[in-house]
Every structure is written in C-alpha cells, then in structure tokens.
C-alpha cells in the first residue's frame, strides 16, 4: 500500500467532507438542534413532523416534477450534443465549447439573467412570444409555466454531462462504424442500432447522476429567480431544506430531511444498478 500514498489526501478529503458529514447528518436527524443549545435526542420526532408537514410533500412533488422534465431534457441535450460533436471536424471543434458555454456562467449570474429573461413586462421572452403573435404564458406567475421555465433553464447547463457523453462516444471503436457503413446501414440505422445501444450504459449513468444533481440544480434558480413561487410551485426540496436549516435554524429537522434524501438517492441508485447490470457486454 506504500506506493499508493498519493491516494490518501483525496481519500482523507472524502472522509472529512463527505463520509463524516453524512454520518453526522444521520445522528443529528434524531435530535432537536437549533444551533444555540447543544443537540438533544428526540427520537423519531423529526420524522413524524416531516410526514405531517404538507409543505414537505409539496416540495417533494415539485422536485419530482422538476426531475421528470429536466432529466430527460438534459440527458438528451448532453447525449445528442456529444453524438453530434464528437468528430474531429472543424464545425464540431467550434460546437463543443459553444455547447459548454452556458455551464461556465456563475450560477448567480445565470439566475439573474433568467430573472430578466422571464420578467413578464421587461423580459425578452415575453416580447419574443408577442412578436410571434402568441400570448406569452405567465412566466413567474403561472405555476406550470414557471416550473417548465426552471427546467428549461437547467437544460442549458449540461457541460459536465457533455464531457462524460463525449468520452463515452469517443470510446466506441471507429472500425464498427466502418463495418456498419460497408453493411449499408443508414445514419439513422447506425444511430439506433449501434451508437445508442453502445452508449446506453454511459447515458444511464449520466441520467442517474443528473437525477441526483437535480436535487440541488434548482436551488439557485428557486432562491433567486422565483423565490419558491408562484404559489409554492418552485419550492423544491433543496430550498425547503435551506429554509428549515438556515432561516428557521431547525438543524435537527433539516438533517432528518437530509437523511430521507440519502435514503431516496440510495434506493434510486440501487434500482439503477440492478437495471444496469444487464448492460455489461463489453
């Protein structure tokens, strides 16, 4: 193990910043803790409160709606862009950084931008709709329009997914594409019968990662663009946790929500893992 010393700083970092906090969260979940007095054990009290809190269920439902819209959008965008942009052509070399560009914008700057874009009076989106002669939905006022807007917003920032999908596409051997060309396969046939099945494991992993990312992806937009509204339509789980912990200082309660998040994530990962085992062909 001596030759693996270089792994230690990273592993130590993970223990201190991920493993230890995760375990601390589990302990805090069973306490009453406001940050002023030391935590006191209160059993399953927090969990029973969570189940009684209609706002939690609302936030969870909102998050699931967000996931249902944003994860497919983002995976299709990242996978599609990677398939389109993996070649060594000059056009692709321009396209790759362009597709990554929105991900480079600081989250706050990006949120402020959308605050303007979605503004019903001053925003360009409303103006664009009107110049097409279509009544603009009430961005920031209609619950569904706002949810969709937040999900679409997230679909531009796919940089990391693009990198993963590009690496996956690049790993496919060129010779099988030549074999497909000689076999007379059309581009569409090659896409559906060769590229997509071979990229499926990577895209599934991407979807999984995205699903988990979705729990935090909408935090900054919800905090800055919509402030959880309209009518709580964009109060997602992260915003709910944030307010519980840092507005109302209910650390024990927020930890309990966190633990539920862990449990849900673990369940999703487990199901995905069982499904993904079927794809081990390479």
């Amino acid at each position: 193990m001596r030759r693996d010393v270089l792994a230690w700083p990273y592993l130590t970092g993970l223990v201190v910043l991920v493993l230890f906090p995760a375990m601390a969260a589990i302990v805090l979940a069973f306490t009453e803790y406001s940050g002023v007095q030391p935590p006191t054990f209160n059993g399953l009290e927090n969990f029973s409160r969570i189940f009684d809190d209609s706002l939690f269920w609302k936030a969870l439902a909102n998050s699931l709606i967000f996931i249902a819209i944003s994860v497919p959008l983002r995976v299709i965008a990242a996978g599609g862009a990677a398939i389109l942009l993996h070649s060594r052509s000059r056009a692709a070399a321009v396209g790759r950084p362009a597709a990554y560009l929105p991900s480079v914008m600081p989250d706050v700057a990006y949120a402020l931008l959308w605050l303007w874009i979605l503004n019903p009076i001053y925003g360009p989106l409303t103006a664009a709709f009107e110049s097409l002669g279509v009544t603009s939905p009430g961005w920031l006022t209609d619950p569904w329009a706002t949810r969709v807007a937040i999900a679409v917003m997230s679909a531009f920032q796919i940089g990391e997914g693009l990198v993963v999908a590009l690496a996956a596409r690049r790993a496919l051997p060129g010779s099988i594409y030549e074999a497909a060309a000689v076999d007379g396969a059309s581009p569409l046939f090659t896409l559906t019968r060769v590229t997509l099945p071979l990229m499926a494991p990577a895209l599934a992993l991407l979807a999984l990662r995205d699903l988990i990312l979705s729990f935090q992806l909408n935090f900054v937009p919800a905090l800055i663009v919509t402030e959880g509204g309209p009518r709580l339509a964009t109060t997602f789980v992260p915003l709910y946790v944030y307010r519980a912990a840092f507005t109302y200082f209910r650390f024990g309660y927020a930890s309990a929500v966190t633990v539920l998040l862990f449990a849900m994530t673990a369940a999703v990962v487990f199901v995905q893992y069982r499904l993904a085992r079927r794809w081990r062909f390479v």
């Binding site: 969260a25 946790v241 912990a245």
Partner: peptide, 18 residues
C-alpha cells in the same frame, strides 16, 4: 461521492465548520 446529493451535506458541514 458523485452520487451524494450536495443538498444533503449542507447542514452537517455547516455544523462541522461552526
């Protein structure tokens, strides 16, 4: 670590740093 939701670490990390 990639699969741990960052949201889940907010509270315990905050407590830890405090």
């Amino acid at each position: 670590a990639l699969m741990v939701p960052a949201t889940a670490l907010w509270v315990p990390r905050f407590v830890m740093f405090r």
